[in-house]
Amino acid sequence: MRNRSVRESVGSIVLGFELIVLFLGGLVAWGLHVAPSAVVITGGVVLIALAIVAILTLRYRVGARIGFAVQVLAILAGIWVHMMFIVGALFLAIWIYAMYSADKVERQKHNETENPQ
């Protein structure tokens, strides 16, 4: 079993929690009939699938970019379910902080292995 990077660990936690929120947001959109059922279900499934792809590709830089796209799309879902503007913005802030912090920890670990005291 390979060691996961801090970016993978933290990113998968954020996206994992967001998967629950996206599912529940899709249920709210469906229950409020904000759009035809097929559109709501398709949009929800695509967004959830994109989050899963981001989790699976977090070992590469593209995974973080896909994760960022999920955050932006979650905010845009606020067009139909207005609370998603707030929820999406909160997850975007968490995502940015998590990715920044993970990179910082990775750099520190890298520097410590190169220059042991």
Rank of each mutant, 00 (worst) to 15 (best):
V14T: 09
Q71F: 01
A93F: 13
G43E: 07
L15W: 01
Q108W: 09
I55S: 05
V39M: 15
F68E: 07
L47K: 10
L22V: 14
R2H: 13
L58E: 03
A93P: 00
L27Y: 08
H110P: 00
I20G: 07
G31D: 12
R2F: 11
L73H: 06
I20E: 02
S37V: 11
L92G: 02
P36S: 09
V10E: 01
L76I: 02
P36K: 12
L76E: 05
G11L: 02
N115C: 03
L15H: 09
R4Y: 15
F91I: 01
S37L: 13
I41S: 03
I52M: 09
M83A: 13
Y100L: 04
S9T: 13
V46W: 07
A74G: 05
G67H: 07
M99W: 02
I48N: 02
N3Y: 08
V53N: 02
V14I: 15
I75L: 11
N3E: 14
N115M: 05
P36C: 08
G31Y: 12
A89E: 02
M99C: 03
S5W: 04
F68P: 00
W30E: 10
F23M: 12
V87C: 05
Y97R: 09
A35G: 00
M99V: 11
L22F: 09
V21Y: 11
I79K: 08
S5L: 07
Y100C: 00
R107P: 00
A74D: 06
I94T: 06
T57G: 00
A29H: 06
V105T: 13
K104D: 10
Y97C: 04
W80V: 03
E106W: 07
L47R: 08
S9A: 11
T57C: 01
E114L: 15
V39A: 13
S12Q: 15
L27R: 10
A38D: 15
A102V: 05
G16D: 11
L58W: 02
R61E: 08
A74Y: 13
Q117P: 03
G88D: 05
G25L: 12
V105P: 00
V45W: 03
V46R: 04
M99R: 07
E112R: 14
P116K: 06
G16R: 03
L22M: 14
E106Y: 09
P36V: 04
K109V: 01
A74Q: 13
G63D: 07
L56Y: 07
R7Y: 06
M1I: 09
I48E: 09
F85N: 02
F17D: 01
R107N: 11
W80F: 15
V39D: 10
L58M: 10
V87H: 10
L56M: 12
E106P: 00
I20P: 00
S12D: 10
Y100M: 05
I41R: 03
Q108D: 10
I52H: 08
L58G: 01
F23W: 14
W30I: 06
L92D: 04
A93C: 08
I48A: 12
Y100H: 08
E114T: 02
D103M: 02
I86F: 13
E18Q: 15
G16F: 06
V62P: 00
R59A: 05
S101N: 10
F91T: 01
V81Y: 13
V45H: 04
A102L: 05
S5K: 12
Q117H: 07
V72P: 01
E8R: 06
H82M: 02
R4T: 10
V28W: 14
I41H: 04
S37H: 14
F85I: 04
I13S: 10
L15D: 07
G31S: 15
W80A: 14
V39Q: 14
